[in-house]
Amino acid sequence: MEFTPEWASQPCLMGIDEAGRGPVLGPMVYGCLYCPISYQSSLASLHFADSKTLKEEKREELYESLKLDKSLGWAVDVIGPRELSAKMLAKLVLDMGVFLTEAYLDTVGDPEKYRIKLSARFPSIKFVVSKKADSLYPVVSGASIVAKVTRDRAVREWLVEETGEDINRKFGSGYPGDPETKAWLEQHKHSVFGFPSLVRFSWGTCTAHLKGEVEVTWESDEADESGNGNSNKRQSKLSRFGFTTCESRSEEIESSGKGRCKFFQARKIQQITQF
C-alpha cells in the first residue's frame, strides 16, 4: 500500500467500509479497496462478500489473496470513533496519485446527505452512498474484508501486548448487549483509569458503566464549552491543596496566570502567597 500502482493513472473506483462501529471493544477501522474501472468485471469473480457473512478463516484467506492481487490497491485507517475517516482515506488515495473517479460506501446515516458532503469535498469523484453497499458492490465487500481483518488482528495484538496477567480474555463478542462483554467490562473497570485501552470509552454504554467512578474533566472539553462555565469543572487548583494565590477572589482564579501581566498569562504562571 506504500507504492502507487502503475494503473493509478487509469480511471479508478474505490470502495470504503468500516468495521467495529457496534462493539465497545477494540478500534474502529476504515478500509478501502480500489482498482481500475476496467478491472471491475474481474472483481466480481473474486467472491468478495460482506465480511460479516464470511467465516473468519475465509476472510483471512480473501484478505491475503487481495493483498497479492496486483490490480488492487488498499489502505486502512485505525481510528478513534470521533474522527470521520472516509474523507481521510479518499484524500490518502488521491494523494498517492490514484486517478479516482468513483467511490462506493455504506453509511448508517442519511445516504444522500453524506453523498452531498463528500461530493463537495471531492468534486472530481462520483460518490455512491448506499445502505448495504458492502453486499451490493464487490469493491465495498473487499474493503469490508480489509477493515474487518485489520480490526480482528488489532484486537488480537492488543491481547498479546497489553494484557496484564490478571486480565481475563473472555470478553465475548464485544457488543454491548452481550452478557459476557458486560461482565468483562464490569470486572475490568478501575475507579481511576476506567477501562483497559481496548475499550472504546466514548461509547454510550461505557459512559453508563463509569457512573460513580472518579470524575475526570479535560482541559480540551472546557475550551469547547465557551464562556466561563461552572468552576468545578476546571483544572485542579492549587488552592485545593492548601495553596492560595495573592488575588482576593482566589476561587475564581486557577493556575492560569489570569489577572497578571501577559508574560505570565501566556505561560499560565500564578503567584502563590499562602501555602
Binding site: 496484564g164 478501575h190 475507579s191 481511576v192 483509569f193 483497559p196 472518579v214 470524575e215 475526570v216 474533566t217 479535560w218 482541559e219 476546571r234 483544572q235 485542579s236
Partner: peptide, 14 residues
C-alpha cells in the same frame, strides 16, 4: 485533565 481523586493507584499497570 483533572482527576478528582487523591491517593495511590496502580499507574504503571494501566
Amino acid at each position: 485533565c483533572c482527576i478528582r481523586f487523591e491517593g495511590p493507584a496502580q499507574v504503571s499497570h494501566y
